[in-house]
Design a protein around this nucleic acid. Sequence first.
DNA 1: TCCTTACGTAAGCAACTGCCTACATAGTGC
DNA 2: GCACTATGTAGGCAGTTGCTTACGTAAGGA
Lengths: 138, 138
Amino acid sequence: MPIATDPLSRIFFALADPTRRAMLERLAAGGATVGALAEPFAMSRPAVSQHLGVLEQAGLIERTRQGQWRSCALRPEGLDDAERWVAEHRAAWQSRFDRLDATLADLARGHDASATSTSTSTSTSTSTTEPPTEEKEQ
Amino acid sequence: MPIATDPLSRIFFALADPTRRAMLERLAAGGATVGALAEPFAMSRPAVSQHLGVLEQAGLIERTRQGQWRSCALRPEGLDDAERWVAEHRAAWQSRFDRLDATLADLARGHDASATSTSTSTSTSTSTTEPPTEEKEQ
DNA sequence: TCCTTACGTAAGCAACTGCCTACATAGTGC
DNA sequence: GCACTATGTAGGCAGTTGCTTACGTAAGGA
C-alpha cells in the first residue's frame, strides 16, 4: 500500500496486523503507557512506538502526555468508518446473493439479459464472444 | 506485514487497499471477468490478477473457470470475521467509554483513582513513581 | 491446423513495512 | 545543577508489496 492516503485504508491497514490488534484489545481494558504495552509483546519500545503511530494515524487511538509518560487511549469512533463499510457491504453482498435466486431464472434464459446490474454490462466489448457479463454459479 | 498468517489479518489487509475495495464494490454489482475488472482501473492485467489473488486468499472472492474467461464472484461470508471483530470491539470500546463517564468524576479528582486495575498495573515496576495506571473501571 | 483472446506466472524494480540499535528529547526527583 | 526514566526519532537492514514487461497456458474460432 503506497502511502495509504484515505482514512478507510489507514484503518484497515492498522487492523491488518495481529500485534496492533492485540494492542487495541489490551487498550480496550484501559489506557496504558507505551512501556506497559511493550511488555507483553516481546518487542522493543521503538517498535511499539511505531505500531502506536500507525494506530494513531488511523484515528484508532490517542496519545496524550501525562507527566513523563505517554498515555494511550482508544478512540471508539475511529472504528466507525470501518464498521460502516463492512456492515454495508456485507449486507449488500448478502442481499445480492439472496436476490440472485430470483434473477437466476432470467439469466438462465441465456440472452445477454442487458445485465441485471446497472453498469456491469460494460464488459470488454472487444471480446470475440460475449464474456459472462453477469452470471452466477448454476 | 510479514506474510500475514491469520485469516483476520488477511481480510483486513485485503481491504486496506482502495483498488481492491473498488474491485469488491464493482463485483458487488455482479460477477465479472478479469479483463472487465482491469478496464476501469488503468492497470495492467497481471496487476489486477495479483489483486484478485490477494482477495481470493482472504476468502473474499472466488475465481472459477468459465470457458476461456475467469469469472470472479464475491464470497459474502468472507467478510463475516471482519464484521464480527469490528462490531464486537467497537461496541466494547463504546460501552467502556460510556461507563467511563461515570468514573470520570473520580478521575478528575487527580488522585490515582485507587487503581482498580486488574492486570494493567503490571506496569514496569521499575519505575520511580507509579505510572498512570490509568482509569480502568471494569 | 493456426491464430486470436483471456489469463496466469516469472523476473525485475522502486517503494514501503517492520524490526533493530543508537541517539535525542522531555519530565521527575535528588 | 545532575542523574534517571519514559518515549520519540533517525538510520540501517531484511523482507514484502505493487507495479511493470515479458512469456507461457488454456479455450474458442476460421
